Computed example of a mutant assay.
Amino acid sequence: MNKLKLLSKTLLVVNFTLFFIILSVKLTVNNKQLYYFDINYLNIPNESGFNVTDIKANYNYLINFITSRQNIEFNMPTLPSSSEGKIHFYEVKNIFIKMDYLFYISIFISSIGVYYSLKFKDFSLFKYLSGLLLFMPILLLTFFSINFNTTFTIFHRLFFRNDYWIFDIDKDPVIRMLPQYFFLHCAMSITIFMIFFSLVSIVIYKNGSEF
């Protein structure tokens, strides 16, 4: 394999990996049933002091806000928010907007990779993709199992340049309905999706010649 072909295949593997990571995040974030399950599983009404109706209304608003491209003012249905809390959610929204751009770019590049694989009957990049997609969840799960609190903190310090994500429970009571174990479940959901896509990739690699 010449250097140009190796470089091209490496870039395609990295791109596919980015695509499936973002897809896993989007599938998890938009799966409101995960949170609805945790409402009872984590006993959120008793822990937060809010009723189920208000919890769902505020959570739905929060998810719709951060995943929408519309430039709207942040005002939760039944809960107050501090100026710092609002800034944090605007920053989260901005991350999702940038993630969407990366997602669309990765779709375009991935289509090139699929075309290349089909045209030349070379599906070897899916073998490497499968390994990378499997390695990353194992690495993440290792960090989670050692100390999720530390991993959670490092994640926020990497993506945010301020400490507005450290909510004052009195000024931003929304944090009462967002227990850390829910974020752990989200992280586990993302890793499960990535493992699934890893298995899909190895199936494509082994059966690609039949396409």
Score class of each variant (00 low, 15 high):
M188F: 14
P80A: 10
V92H: 01
F155K: 09
L79K: 01
I105H: 01
K3F: 09
R176D: 02
L125V: 00
S110T: 02
I39P: 00
K86G: 10
F126W: 04
Y59P: 00
S130I: 01
Y41V: 08
P173H: 01
N43R: 08
R161Y: 15
P179W: 04
A187I: 09
Y104W: 04
Y36D: 09
K93C: 07
T28L: 03
M188N: 15
Y164N: 14
P173A: 14
Y164E: 12
L12G: 06
Y128R: 08
R69V: 11
F108Q: 04
K98W: 14
S110E: 01
F152T: 00
L27T: 08
I21A: 01
T17M: 08
E210F: 07
D172H: 11
I202C: 08
T28Y: 04
R176I: 02
S81P: 14
Y104L: 15
F89G: 02
E73T: 09
I175S: 03
V114Q: 02
S209M: 12
S106N: 03
S81V: 03
N162Y: 00
S130W: 02
K93V: 05
K119M: 04
L34T: 10
L132R: 00
G85E: 08
M177G: 10
F74D: 14
T53Q: 14
I204C: 11
V14D: 01
I72R: 12
N71P: 02
I55D: 10
Y90L: 14
N31H: 08
Y101A: 15
K98T: 12
F144I: 14
K206S: 07
L118T: 10
R69F: 15
F193M: 06
S198E: 01
K119Q: 02
F159C: 02
I204M: 09
L134M: 08
L199D: 06
M136Y: 13
S82C: 06
S201D: 00
I44E: 14
M1Y: 14
Q70D: 15
N2H: 10
S8E: 11
I190A: 04
I63T: 06
I166P: 11
I44F: 01
T17K: 07
I39T: 06
V29L: 15
S82R: 05
N46S: 14
F96P: 09
Q33P: 05
L158K: 03
P137G: 04
N43A: 13
N94S: 11
I146C: 09
K171C: 13
S110N: 11
T78D: 07
I202F: 03
F160T: 03
A187C: 12
D172P: 01
H88W: 02
E73L: 14
F160D: 03
F96V: 11
F143R: 12
I146K: 05
S117F: 05
R157D: 09
I175H: 01
F108C: 12
E91A: 12
